[in-house]
Amino acid sequence: MNKLFRELLPFGSLILVIAILSLWQPESFLTLDNFLNVLRRSSVYGIIALGMTFVIISGGIDLSVGSLLALCGMLAAGVMIGIGGQEPSSGVMILGTAIGLLAGAVGGALSGALITKLKLQPFIATLGTMSLYRGIALVMYDGQPINVASYRYLGEGSLLGIPVSVVLFVVVTVMSGAILHFTRFGRHVYAIGSNVQAAYHAGVKVDRSLIGVYLLGGLLTGLGAMIAMSRTVSAQPTAGVGAELDVIAAVVIGGASLSGGRGTVTGTIVGSLLISFLRNGCTLMGISTNAQLIVIGVVIVFAVALDQFTRRKASDAA
């Protein structure tokens, strides 16, 4: 009963928020356009949060995702403009996108390597890479953004009437869930987060798995970066400042534990959507972006406190 309650809890709060907003602002909130808009807005951080879910379940944390988001965008845009000029061809844009994804994977793998090979704590290692990646992104073009006016497909395109970014969000969600719950790699991620010693004793190649986890997180950050860049048709070296906190918040609101071993893809999706709908609702109600921070902050603290509380109850009972 308690367990059921806790698993439904994030859904409950999401449904509650949607219900309140629907009643309050039926004309502007409860429309297909608004919902697609919210989904499109949540797709970037949502996709990154899915990667972060793996990291957090493994007992780690990745503070560098915001910086990596900017770096991937700058590298991809730099390649597009550098090779294709101001009007790059689709071939060049695909190449640039590939570079952006690759940069994400490499950036994530580097964090993973620092954590496993140099035995740094994930917090420290990614605090370092956070600064490193941001620095590179800023130095590249002297802090100037790069405009790629023709890179519109990921941000504005649509498939069967559904925005491409939303389609990607759904695809990544399904794939993440499949990897986490139906592959040996996914099982190893949980095992490492639950008890890294026991996982090692059971023959799990802990270092290799962890590098895989951070690589996957970086790759999804790269994908998020491409969508973000396409939406604004420019790469900003200051993009994603503070993104890591929103992303971690989404994962944690979804019921994941920062001490590892617990978390789900559905939880993360609910967490991401909850934050997006809250933002959306606040905007519709005319609450300023500054005041929105207060609402988000209260929700995060409340959600995590509740999580800790139910966890303590559960361990008392055992």
Binding site: T183, R184, R187, A198, G261
Partner: peptide
């Protein structure tokens, strides 16, 4: 043991590859 995970994980984890679940469970 993986104390807060399903009990069977503690039992099967080292054997997954041998059971033909090297990649897909």
């Amino acid at each position: 043991l993986f104390l807060d995970c399903p009990a069977l994980w503690s039992m099967t984890l080292p054997c997954l590859a041998q059971l033909g679940m090297k990649y897909i469970l």
